[in-house]
Design a protein around this nucleic acid. Structure first.
Lengths: 146, 146
DNA sequence: ACTGAAATAGCCCCTTT
DNA sequence: AAAGGGGCTATTTCAGT
């Protein structure tokens, strides 16, 4: 990727609501040139969309956990991500190397809600779970250096 | 949190660039009322900011990994997050329950870059590392159900 | 707290270089 | 590809309820 596009993407990673006017000043181009570049970055999928960053405590999901899962029967077809997609508490699903098959990041309201979610995960995908509870988050979702 | 605020936050989690006009239609309020509510949600920190969602392959960081770290000397003061904050490849740092002290999520350009990063992490924070490489990402950063 | 309206600013398309 | 201009829409503030 090119210099100017990098600068645009980096800026929008920090502040997704930057106006084209501000962006244009930062990268030293005209507003319409920047606008055109952003549109292309969106169309090429470099920028997938824009999201508000939320305070999970404030929205009632103060408990974060990582759930490593492993199929009970590794010979069966593995459609765990599909089966688990319906559970909205699962924020992310990563297929990983190592002993586990998938690593999920989940957000719930309480320890009790986590217990219920783990049961749902196990029964929905026929897997065992190994859960790591997050105690605090020194930092998260830092914008990449690009 | 209240009904209308939830709807606003949920909508902005999916599309952080929604106009106040569109938001107003969705929640059934006037534009200025919605604007006022969004400003308050931002001031109260419920909405922390806005970010572009990036394609990490496209921006040259195609390799994601989770790095569990543990201090070599658990009796020393633990300032690992601070010491590691300078490494921009570390996207997130979670303090976790269990055998490990912290779980990092990192994004790098290549396996070689991961090797170098792990060395930097170990020397910067005086820790051992256990790394889980992400092979693929079925889904990530799904907006919460609120 | 919400509405409505007025002024400002930014978006977006089109033309030109 | 980038710049500039013009019409239009959204943002933002303010007064009123």
């Amino acid at each position: 990727m090119e210099e100017t596009d990098r600068a645009i993407v980096a800026a929008l990673a920090v502040d997704g609501r930057l106006s084209y006017t501000d962006l244009a000043e930062r990268v030293g181009l005209s507003v319409s040139a920047v606008h055109q570049r952003v549109r292309r970055l969106e169309q090429r999928g470099v920028i997938n969309g824009y999201a508000a960053r939320l305070d999970h405590d404030a929205i009632g999901l103060p408990l974060t956990a990582f759930v490593a899962i492993r199929p009970l029967d590794p010979s069966q077809p593995d459609d765990a991500p599909d089966r688990l997609a319906k559970l909205p508490q699962i924020e992310s699903c990563y297929s990983v190397a190592g002993e586990d098959f998938y690593l999920l990041m989940v957000r719930v309201e309480s320890p009790l809600a986590l217990e219920r979610l783990l049961q749902e995960i196990r029964s929905a995908a026929n897997v065992t779970t190994r859960t790591t509870v997050v105690l605090s988050t020194p930092y998260e979702h830092r914008p990449p250096k690009i």
